[in-house]
Design a protein around this nucleic acid. Structure first.
Length: 308
DNA sequence: TATCCAAGGTAAGTT
DNA sequence: AACTTACCTTGGATA
């Protein structure tokens, strides 16, 4: 096992591990203390977070088990990690430590709501989740609470994922498309996926068979990429936007979920244009275009946590 | 204790 | 293309 540390002060802008991992973007990490994400910021921010990552072209060509913990503040703290290999490039990729967060937030409009959200969750970054697990996570997110989405992904890993050991502990990788496509709808329903079970099974089948690859969307212009992802079963505009934003690096994507729709109604009623595509375009412009998705994520977390 | 409700939506069927 | 409706499950609210 290798260990290492990343000095947060060396990054371009602050970083908050807990806000980043518990803000409803990624459902692929477990807290070592067993706490769920049900209560935001309920148990302090220094827990170990654990995950297993399958090979990512250009980042890692092997499967990696890793743990990470933040000690100290969002400006001057330290990220401690333990992994089966040098995890610094991988953490940089997954947690977008290469983003210049100050510059990104400066480039968004001076809206009071955004300023309040930025102040409340200083250091929260977007994630770069592996695309297939991200796709499954957000198919499961339909009409679900954040804590329960997290529970579903955890059960999928525990039931069907390969065991990977690190430092005497065994962690579970997210099931591959092949592993998931081999399950039946009923088996997935037994994990409390409900009506999402056949969506997950059929989407896994599409990926496993080579019929479609969610990574292909990465090379398309934004709106075409969104349209392209909706080919997967259980994926509409909203879920597609989540995958584009939280996995494929389309920072302009603004998923129109119930929280953001409420925000549009209350704060920016002019942006309500009826259809998803038109409203999405309007709110994306309201949030400054290029980094609108960053703004969206702060607003989502801020409002969900009870902020105004 | 029982019932109701809403949770980061989507697919399928109608106008 | 826009509009309805059904859909699994469950913790928490309400009666």
């Amino acid at each position: 096992m290798e260990r290492g540390a990343i000095d947060v002060g060396d990054l371009a802008g602050p970083f908050d591990l807990q806000a980043t991992l518990e803000s409803g973007q990624s459902y692929l990490w477990n807290r070592a203390d067993g706490e769920t994400y049900a209560e935001l910021h309920a148990h302090g921010g220094d827990a170990w977070y654990e995950t297993v990552v399958d090979p990512i072209p250009g980042v890692t060509d092997e499967r990696v088990a890793l743990r990470v913990r933040q000690e100290g503040g969002v400006h001057d703290g330290t990220l401690h990690w333990e992994a089966s290999t040098d995890a610094e490039p991988l953490l940089t990729h997954l947690l977008r430590l290469d983003d210049d967060l100050d510059a990104i937030l400066d480039a968004t409009p001076d809206l009071p709501l955004l300023e309040r959200a930025y102040d409340a969750y200083e250091g929260m970054r977007l994630t770069r989740d592996p695309v297939f697990p991200c796709l499954v996570s957000f198919i499961c997110s339909a009409q679900m609470r954040v804590a329960r989405i997290h529970g579903m992904q955890r059960r999928l890993r525990e039931a069907y994922g390969d065991g990977v050991s690190l430092g005497g502990e065994t962690y579970r990788a997210f099931p591959t498309p092949e592993q998931l496509s081999a399950r039946t709808e009923d088996e997935l329903r037994d994990l409390s996926l409900g009506y999402r079970a056949p969506y997950v099974q059929r989407t896994a089948e599409m990926v496993a068979s080579g019929e479609a690859d969610p990574l292909d969307a990465a090379d398309l212009p934004y709106e075409e990429a969104r349209e392209s992802l909706t080919r997967f079963v259980g994926v509409g505009d909203k879920v597609a936007d989540c995958v584009l934003l939280f996995s494929l690096g389309f920072l302009e994507a603004v998923p129109l979920d119930t929280w953001i729709r409420t925000t549009v109604e209350e704060y920016y009623p002019d942006c309500d244009r009826g259809s998803y595509a038109a409203t999405s375009r309007a709110i994306r412009e309201q949030f400054g275009g290029e980094f609108a998705g960053y703004a969206q994520t702060y607003v989502f977390y801020h409002l969900r946590a009870g902020g105004e």
